[in-house]
Computed example of a mutant assay.
Amino acid sequence: MLSKMRAYGAICAFVAFLLAMAEPASAIQGGTVSKHGPWAVRVYIDGEPSCTGTVVAPEWVITAGHCVRYDNWDITFRVGSLDQRHGKVVRRVENGTVFASGADVALVRVPRLDVQPIGLGTGASVKVGRSVRSYGWGATCAPPRSEGSCQSNVLKQAQVTIVKHADKRCDLLVGTGDFCVQRGTGLPAGGDSGGPATAFDKAGREVLVGVLSASDRTEVASFGDVTRLRSWIKWVIRTGGH
């Protein structure tokens, strides 16, 4: 139990560092309550609402790697509702978590869900200057209040704009497998980790293009680029990652 608490404390401190490198502002504050997002998933760590995820296949949820890092964490998901107080609770399948290389992204196997998965975007969706939509159940308050005390009960969304990878505001947030966005109608932060960034393809379908990795809570956030991981995601879904 002690080692579990230490591991949990260490990862929470790490996530807090990533999400607090600038003077904070509320998560998706100024955004709107979402009326759509059947594939959105609330992620719980040891019973506490902690992250966001997305259903990409009937048995697979994609989220941030740091949200599901340790096997001794009790990871559960609530699916099928835009209100985190409702929906179905499912647990991850043992030994069914697969981590991407070069991005803070993980695929987590779950019992088969009766949820329509979101499609995967292509590279054409991630261009500098393009507006994408961020979703999450993250914090609705700013410090000194604790983010854990004000997680949104309802799914929220905000439009954010992709900026250059070399933008100096993004230096401490983005890796080679990420893209950076700047605040638009809002900005994701604590509790939104692992949440989706979406765009609309040429057919008008909303598709997944990013997985939230980190945010400075004031100006910019980083997303693991799903369009670069498209082949890996399909391979894991097909083979189980083995």
Rank of each mutant, 00 (worst) to 15 (best):
V68N: 02
P117V: 03
V174P: 08
Q182V: 05
Y70M: 08
P143T: 07
G241A: 06
F179K: 04
Y8I: 04
P49D: 03
R6Y: 07
K4G: 14
L155I: 01
G184C: 08
A189Q: 01
G65S: 15
I118V: 08
S101T: 09
L2D: 14
L18P: 02
R169I: 04
P144I: 03
V132G: 10
A214G: 01
P38F: 02
T161R: 11
V154H: 08
A64F: 02
R112Q: 09
A106W: 11
M21R: 13
G119Q: 15
L212T: 02
K35Q: 12
P188R: 00
M1R: 15
G80D: 09
V110S: 10
R217Q: 13
L2Y: 05
G210D: 01
V108W: 12
G102R: 11
D178L: 07
V56Q: 04
A16C: 09
R92A: 13
M21F: 10
L212P: 05
A214H: 06
Y70W: 12
W60T: 15
V236E: 14
G148R: 06
V105H: 02
R109G: 13
W232N: 12
D46R: 02
Y8T: 06
T97L: 07
V128F: 02
I233W: 03
F14R: 13
G9D: 05
N72H: 12
S231D: 15
R6C: 06
A25H: 10
G121K: 12
D192M: 06
D171T: 13
D178K: 09
R238F: 15
R78S: 15
D74R: 12
G175C: 04
R42E: 08
S134W: 03
D216S: 04
T198H: 02
C12P: 00
E23Q: 11
A221Y: 03
H36C: 07
P24R: 13
G241R: 05
I28S: 00
S146G: 10
E147C: 14
T97P: 08
L82T: 01
A100N: 08
M1E: 15
W137C: 04
G177C: 13
Q182E: 12
A40D: 12
A22Y: 03
K168C: 05
W60S: 10
M1C: 15
V163L: 08
Q29D: 10
E59L: 04
I11M: 15
G119E: 11
V68G: 03
W39I: 07
S34I: 04
L172N: 08
V128P: 01
Y135E: 05
T239I: 13
A103P: 10
R145T: 01
R92L: 11
G241K: 08
V41T: 09
D83H: 11
S125M: 12
R91V: 03
I237E: 14
P188K: 00
V79M: 06
A142V: 08
R6W: 09
R183D: 01
V108H: 13
S213T: 12
A10I: 14
C180E: 04
S81V: 01
A25W: 08
E48W: 14
G53Y: 04
V93H: 06
R238L: 15
G186N: 09
A7W: 07
G190P: 02
K234C: 06
K127N: 10
